[in-house]
């Protein structure tokens, strides 16, 4: 089934078509979600929300862009909303944690690699450091950078997803890299 036929079938409530779409795009969505939120449980929740949104707004897909572009756009929007909610939530969480102790102590999973344990800790710290540095970038730089570096998308694809010109995307990513470099240099200086 081609993209448009698939999405039309979903619009008509064809469950098999929806399953086909989920199977076709779940890697894309799950990986992008993970790139944005870094926590496997949250990313899983978010990926489900993305597909629910795809299902609900199937009729809005006009076939003007590739289906993957449209799904990316929904994924990015959902991820950003999630992060905004999360920031508000963590304000309350920190108060809750202060009053009742932290849930995180119980080993609520964060993304972590299995394997060589001695390298794990250092890598984990470095990874947190770089995620934090990315997190601190201005929003559009952050999105463009992630889609480019983590999702391996071309600048053209990113331009379509973000609905920007190619040159804006180039400039966003260039600035993102400069900023990231600067932030990382600051970390190295502090000896982190």
């Amino acid at each position: 089934m081609n993209e448009l036929a698939l999405i039309r079938a979903i619009q008509n409530g064809d469950e098999q078509a929806f399953k086909q779409l989920v199977d076709r795009y779940q890697l894309l969505v799950r990986n992008t979600c993970l790139n944005f939120v870094h926590d496997k449980h949250d990313a899983e929740d978010l990926a489900q929300e993305v597909f629910i949104e795809v299902f609900r707004s199937a009729s809005k897909f006009r076939g003007e862009s590739k289906l993957s572009t449209w799904i990316y756009r929904i994924t990015v929007n959902k991820s950003l909303n999630f992060q905004r909610d999360n920031k508000r939530r963590s304000f309350f969480q920190s108060i809750g944690d202060a009053l009742f102790g932290s849930e995180k102590m119980l080993g609520v999973s964060t993304v972590s690699a299995e394997g060589q344990p001695e390298q794990d800790l250092e890598n984990k710290e470095r990874k947190e450091q770089i995620y934090r540095a990315i997190e601190e970038l201005p929003e559009r730089q952050k999105i463009a950078f992630r889609l480019s570096k983590l999702d391996d998308l071309s600048y053209q694809e990113i331009a379509e997803i973000m609905q920007l010109s190619l040159s804006s995307v180039e400039s966003l990513i260039h600035r993102a890299k400069l900023n990231l470099q600067k932030k990382l240099y600051q970390c190295y200086k502090k000896g982190i």
């Binding site: 450091q129 770089i130 570096k149 990382l184």
Partner: peptide
Amino acid sequence: DLALLNFEKY
């Protein structure tokens, strides 16, 4: 550091 970014992917 940048090599770590693509460390985990489904």
